[in-house]
Each structure stands twice: as structure tokens, then as C-alpha cells.
């Protein structure tokens, strides 16, 4: 079998650790009784308008800084228009062309994974499915999310998991998100393609509904196998949404993307441009710490060997001394 190169990019959505929702003062807490944390705004009633949560902005900036991004002093919210019962306004307020942060990177085992963007958006409601009907709970509607997107710099399922584990640790360490995967506070959507030809990427598929790191690794391995087999047979890989089954431990095509949804993005008229002053960015920067594993990566880059780097970075005292 010829050598196939794997290319993976990952999109993560994480719920921010704020007291209230993104555009209203409803509590953003988890696990309450249905529809008890809902107001006219997060229900999208006629006549309501969004009011932006300052803490959510702060945490997004912090995430951008922790990921070495450029923070934009001016960013814009946009409407992503689509219909679904868990989306009360018929559009999601998100960011499109002008996100809060872009151009960052994470160092991982000597490799660099570039962060394309970090932006702020609102969560949709939660639905439970019964036999003949679906039930919708809007407690989750409007909770603040950050979306973190990498460039396609990851080249193996193991690296994908390492990236996710590191990202999760950063978000938790910086108090940006509790990032508990089981509570759907940390959702990963990798996209993956394989290619035999050097410099040319294959058609990518998007894997959704992953509930654990194990599922991430297994689903990506399965998808590599599936795509490789398809190509070996002389067929083409179709752009699709892929689901993974924990029972069969296999991936399957859930939906072919013949027609990508037309989200008709346009700037949100109810929210003027978000201006973030350099002073505020500098203030937030002072609250950004560094994970031991990140320090270690930095030291290795500076020339230390792995063992020494690991020892020095593991304690705040030694690392402070070293950095002097």
C-alpha cells in the first residue's frame, strides 16, 4: 500500500466560564431543570436585542493571548442564518470575517500547530428525542462559546489527541472554561483528509459527535482507513459529515455535503463593532499564566534537552529562576 499522508485540522467549541449568558443576564449554569434559566432574550422573543457580556469578551481575549494570537482591537459580530428548532432566532450571533483573535500557535512535542482563529459566539438550545417527538430546553441557549480553529498542521490521530489534551489543559488552567468533554463543554470537530500526492490535500471530511479523547483517536484511525480504502479502490472520497459509533468503533458517512448550507453571513446590525483597547489587552495579558508543559516546550526551543526542560518547568520557582 502506497504511503498516504494524513492532514488534520481541528475545530473546538468550549463553553466559557461566565456567570451569565453571552447576550443576557440568565445564569449560564449547567444541569438545572428545563427552561428555568431562560428570558425573553435567549428565547428570541419578538422585540429583543442582544447585550454583550464583558466577561465573555475578556475570556476570549485571554484564550487568544494564551494561544499566542494577535488580538484585534476592532472586531465584528455576524449573523449565521439557518433554521433549526434549537436556534430560537433562526440565526446564531457569531463572528465571521473579523474575529477577536487570529494567527496564534501552540508548541507540541517540538512541533508547532498554528491557530487560525479564536472567536466568540452563542450556544444553541438542547433537545431530547422521544419516540414521536422532540423536547427542547432553552437553558443552554445563549451560553457563551469560544471557537478555536487550527490550521491543518496535525498529521496523526495521536497528535490530534495531544493537541486536544493540551488545549483543554490550557483552557482549564487559565480559568477560561471547565472544558469537561462529557458535559459537552468541550466539543471537538476534527476534519481529516488523506493524500498520496505530495503537496496536494485530499478531500476532507468532518467528524462530529465525539464524546471522549478515545473516540477522537479511534474515529480518526477509522476514517483514515476508510478514506485510504476508498482511494485504493479508485473511487473518490466525498465531502461529508462523519459520525463515529462507540459500539462498532467505526466511522460512517452521516450526511453527504452536496450542497453546503448557505449561511448568508452579514454583520450583526444590533451590535456595533467591538472595540478592545490595547490597555485592556495588556491588563488581561497579566492574568495569563503558562502551563508547565508550555514552559517545557519553550525551554526545549531555547536549546535545553527534554529531561532538563521537564524538570525545570515543573516548578514555578525553578522556572522563574531559569527565565531570569
Amino acid at each position: 500500500m502506497a504511503e498516504y499522508k494524513t492532514t488534520i485540522g481541528i475545530e473546538v467549541h468550549a463553553q466559557l466560564k461566565t456567570v451569565t449568558k453571552l447576550f443576557c443576564g440568565c445564569p449560564a449554569s449547567f444541569g438545572e431543570e428545563a427552561n428555568t434559566n431562560v428570558c425573553s432574550i435567549c428565547l428570541g422573543l419578538p422585540g429583543v436585542l442582544p447585550s454583550l457580556n464583558k466577561k465573555a469578551v475578556e475570556l476570549t481575549v485571554k484564550a487568544g493571548l494564551a494561544l499566542n494570537c494577535e488580538i484585534h482591537t476592532r472586531s465584528i459580530f455576524a449573523r449565521k442564518n439557518y433554521f433549526y428548532p434549537d436556534l430560537p432566532k433562526g440565526y446564531q450571533i457569531t463572528q465571521y470575517r473579523f474575529p477577536i483573535a487570529t494567527g496564534g500557535k501552540i508548541s507540541l512535542e517540538g512541533r508547532e500547530i498554528r491557530i487560525k482563529r479564536v472567536h466568540l459566539e452563542e450556544e444553541s438550545a438542547k433537545s431530547i428525542h422521544e419516540k414521536d417527538k422532540s423536547l427542547i430546553d432553552y437553558n443552554r441557549s445563549g451560553v457563551p462559546l469560544i471557537e478555536i480553529v487550527t490550521e491543518p498542521d496535525i498529521d496523526s490521530p495521536d497528535m490530534a489527541v495531544a493537541y486536544l489534551k493540551t488545549l483543554q489543559k490550557i483552557l482549564q488552567f487559565e480559568n477560561i472554561s471547565d472544558a469537561v468533554m462529557a458535559r459537552a463543554e468541550f466539543r471537538c470537530e476534527p476534519n481529516i483528509s488523506v493524500s498520496k500526492e505530495k503537496g496536494i490535500l485530499g478531500t476532507r471530511t468532518e467528524v462530529k459527535n465525539l464524546n471522549s479523547f478515545k473516540a477522537v483517536k479511534k474515529s480518526l484511525l477509522s476514517e483514515i482507513r476508510r478514506q485510504t480504502e476508498t482511494l485504493e479502490k479508485g473511487k473518490t472520497v466525498e465531502q461529508a459529515t462523519i459520525h463515529y459509533s462507540e459500539e462498532t468503533q467505526k466511522t460512517w458517512v452521516a450526511r453527504i455535503k452536496e450542497e453546503s448550507s448557505d449561511y448568508r453571513y452579514f454583520p450583526e446590525p444590533d451590535l456595533p463593532p467591538l472595540l478592545i483597547s490595547q490597555t485592556w489587552i495588556d491588563e488581561i495579558k497579566t492574568t495569563v499564566g503558562e502551563l508547565p508543559v508550555q514552559k517545557k516546550e519553550k525551554y526545549v526551543e531555547l536549546g535545553l534537552n527534554e529531561k532538563d526542560a521537564k524538570t525545570i518547568s515543573s516548578s514555578t520557582t525553578t522556572s522563574r529562576l531559569f527565565e531570569k
Binding site: A34, K133, S134, L135, I136
Partner: peptide, 8 residues
């Protein structure tokens, strides 16, 4: 205490 719709 939920809103309902045909099975999604």
C-alpha cells in the same frame, strides 16, 4: 416543562 416539535 419542555417545548415540543415533531421528532428531530
Amino acid at each position: 416543562n419542555h417545548f415540543t416539535i415533531n421528532r428531530m
